[in-house]
Structure formats: C-alpha cells, structure tokens
Design a protein around this nucleic acid. Structure first.
Length: 290
DNA sequence: TTTCCATTTCCTGCTT
DNA sequence: AAAGCAGGAAATGGAA
C-alpha cells in the first residue's frame, strides 16, 4: 500500500477519537488494547475518551458482550463523565450489559489497579452470579462478576446454579499485547463496527461468516500491528489458511475473501442468545416440575 | 540455550 | 491477466 493510502486508512481509523497523532498502532486498532490501560492509568476519572473506549472494548471482550448490541456512541465521554454515571445511567446507556460495566468501573474506582491478571484470567466458577435489582426483573445478560457474596447488592440469580457459563480462557484479554493473534485481530475488527472503517464485514453473524472488503488494508493494519511494513494479504491469507487445521477457521468453498470462524475461535458469538435459551429452557423445566 | 509455537516468506500450481 | 486460493517447505522471532 502506498503511503497516501496508508494515511487515508489512518485517518479513517483515528479521526473519530482524535488520535491522529497516535504513533503506536497497537494502542489504536481493535485488539491492540493492552495492559497499559490498567497499569498506567488506574484512576478511571482521569481517562481520556479513548481510554474509556479501550476499557469498554476490554469489558465487551471479557464478558462476551455482543458489540452490535452495545451503543458505543453513548460512551463518547471521558473518564470524569464516565465516573459520574449512576447505575441507572449505565443501564440506560448500555442496556443489560450496563450492570457489568457499572460494577467493573466500581471495582476500578475502589483501588489502584484493582483489576489484575489473576482476576482477568479467573476461571468461570470463580465468578459470582448475581443481580442487584430484582425488582426490575432479571435481564438476560445478568452475569455480574466479582461481586462479593456478602455485598448487599449480590442477590442470587435464580439461574446461578444452572448457568455454569463456560467463559473460554482465551476469550479473556491477554495482558500482553504481543499475545494477540491474527484471528483475534480479525475478530476484534468485526466486533467493533464503530471502529471498523469498512475493512471486514459479517456475512452471517450467527454462523460466524465474514468477508474481507479491503483485504490489503487489513493486511497493512496487521503488518503495522506486528511492525512489519511488508505484510500483504497473500501472506496474511496463508496464516489464515493454517487456522483451518486448528479449527479456528472453517473453509468456505467457492467464495473469495470469505472465511468462517471455527469451533476453536472464541469470543465472537452472542452470549446473550445462549443465556436467553437457557432461561427459556429453565422456565420450561420449572413448569414441568411444578 | 533450547524448544515450541505462531506466524512470515516464498513458492508452485490451480481457480475464478 | 489479475486476484485469490491451496498448501508445502523453510525461516523467523518471541515466549517459556
């Protein structure tokens, strides 16, 4: 890609957040978020808009919140504004996922670097399932982690014993930016359409089928991420083809630039759909048992 | 230092 | 003809 084309891509990527001067692409591209947010800027009230957005990305990835259901424009705010939001503000701004965001932010506000590696990589069973406002009805996305059982808001979710949700290990944020893989980079471009300047699009969201719209632009972005200016789509696609054997991708016959996530690709599905199905199933079971 | 892993690079041949 | 796909082989660089 030419320099001019690269600059155009940069401007497409960075304009929204005023990041034209950003020199470290790993901080900017989806999936490039890293531990720096937590290690260097632990006080959320001092976050920039971009850091708020970065935190949001981490939360969405960590809890498998469907990006398409998250109104990102409601979070075009800085850390000060974010910290002034009430629980109800979060519910209004992010729907049922607002509860997760609110409690996560509360954790961060409680102490310096409250979120650490151990917590981020905790096994599913280490999370508490709870919902603080039963009078409002249980939302479908009511998995609120790290709320102490003695917390006054930590009322047991009726599905707590049932929802042994399997948060895959590699769906959590790697605190090491170098640990981010190509397929995760691709996935994250897809998950954050607000940050995706028409590079890749879903062909079938539920099946995990997607298509490259600007193959060379994606390759250039990946190359910049890896500090490799000679990256091309040809090379990137070779790496993609290696994913077939590992079942991270599935082959899609006869369609150029089209790929499909495989069984070993994590973090792209809409968890909410699964939870809803479980809730319906449990409701049916309850009726049968009664 | 060695080994392993995930690409990266280069290649030939094939398909659209 | 160009672009993309398929997959072998070897090289590379970071992590453990």
């Amino acid at each position: 890609m030419s320099t001019a084309a690269s600059s155009t891509l940069d401007s497409q990527l960075f304009t929204t957040w005023g990041l034209n001067s950003y020199s470290d692409v790993s901080m900017v591209v989806p999936g490039g978020y890293s531990s720096r947010l937590w290690t260097n800027d632990c006080q959320p009230q001092f976050w920039s808009k971009y850091q708020v957005w970065e935190w949001l990305q981490q939360m969405m990835d960590m809890y498998q919140i469907d990006a398409s259901s998250m109104p990102m424009h409601n979070f075009d705010i800085d850390g000060c504004q974010l910290c002034s939001m009430s629980y109800q503000d979060f519910l209004r701004a992010a729907g049922s996922a607002g509860a997760i965001l609110y409690h996560s932010l509360t954790d961060l506000k409680l102490g310096p670097c409250h979120v650490d590696t151990v917590q981020l990589e905790a096994k599913p069973t280490e999370f508490e399932f709870s919902y603080p406002f039963p009078e409002a009805g249980y939302p479908s996305m009511s998995v609120i982690p790290r709320l102490h059982p003695c917390h006054p808001l930590a009322l047991p979710h009726p599905l707590a014993p049932v929802l042994k949700l399997n948060f895959p290990h590699n769906s959590f944020i790697s605190l090491d930016p170098r640990g981010s893989h190509l397929w995760e980079f691709i996935r994250d471009i897809l998950l954050y359409p607000e940050r995706n300047p028409g590079l890749i699009k879903w062909e079938d969201r539920t099946e995990g089928v997607f298509r490259f719209l600007k193959s060379e632009a994606v390759a250039q972005l990946w190359g910049r991420r890896k500090n490799n200016s000679s990256m091309t789509y040809e090379k990137l696609s070779r790496a993609m083809r290696y994913y077939y054997k590992r079942e991270i991708l599935e082959r899609v016959d006869g369609r150029r630039l089209v790929y499909k996530f495989g069984r070993n690709a994590r973090g792209w599905k809409e968890l909410e759909t699964a939870v809803l199905a479980l809730e319906k199933g449990l409701a049916l079971l309850t009726i049968i048992l009664l």
